[in-house]
Design a protein around this nucleic acid. Structure first.
Lengths: 142, 142
DNA sequence: ATTGGTGCAAAGGTTTTGCATTTAG
DNA sequence: CTAAATGCAAAACCTTTGCACCAAT
């Protein structure tokens, strides 16, 4: 997403714009590796040396509340996702990498519709994690 | 699951049996509401007044490592699951209830096979949470 | 008899809260 | 100008660790 578009999107959601918030949101939107708070911090602190974790947590909370990102709690700490389309997360049990998979999007859509129909349950959002070894970790062992 | 069967299952996994461990495992296996550590504590402490959270955490870690239960980390604390068949969790965003859904088991199976084939990713286990309002919470508002 | 589980206490690490200062609208 | 965000510090919370004692095999 372009920086200007993100700015407009946040503005349209009634989020007060600050340089720090924009930088944090840009990292989230432009990352496909589902960064943690610490990782976001490392990717932003060069541009904002005075930035603290507090501001990152606070910004994340705003973005989650407005529905612009999704939190993925894990055992040790949370990671964050900006791809809000229903999809699968392939989580590597070795290295911790998380990759989105769109390979089965049609089946995912079927599944959502089927559940909403049969369970009479309106799905606001979903989290689908598949755990296994990623290609990198499997090939390293061979 | 019968208490004796659980005992045998744990034994066969090489888990040293203690009365505390049996009681904790029984709560996990017989609960369908995905209890938290605190909830397990409340359901067991009457029978073991000296029991501490430490023992619950330690027992849970053993059961998770042996693959007898699955941990579901949430933002505030983890909850635990003993239904290891691939299935959906319907998570209520109002009251926090978590219910297993088997309504779409066939589609879930298709999805798993499809992903393993198209992504060349062997799925060790999975977590599928669908978030929305449960029937109780929806009916209360009407 | 020996390994390891239990319980008590303390520590660790992530996330939240309080508050003065600064900034966006 | 006013409301709210930032940054610093401290606190809160869940979970883990260390260790002495006790229990299971």
């Amino acid at each position: 997403m372009l920086s200007n578009d993100l700015h407009q999107l946040m503005k349209s959601e009634g989020i007060k714009i600050t340089p720090q918030r924009l930088a944090i949101a840009e990292v989230l939107v432009n990352s496909t590796d589902h960064p943690s708070v610490q990782q976001i911090y490392e990717r932003v602190k060069d541009h904002f040396p005075s930035l603290t974790l507090n501001t990152i947590y606070s910004t994340i909370n705003v973005l989650v509340k407005r529905g612009l990102i999704q939190e993925l709690p894990f055992q040790q700490y949370s990671r964050y996702e900006s791809n809000l389309n229903p999809h699968l997360n392939l989580v590597c049990t070795i290295c911790g990498d998380i990759a989105d998979s769109s390979a089965a999007d049609a089946l995912v859509k079927d599944l959502l519709l089927n559940v909403e129909g049969s369970e009479n349950f309106e799905i606001a959002w979903q989290r689908m994690d598949f755990y296994g070894e990623c290609k990198k970790c499997t090939s390293v062992k061979d």
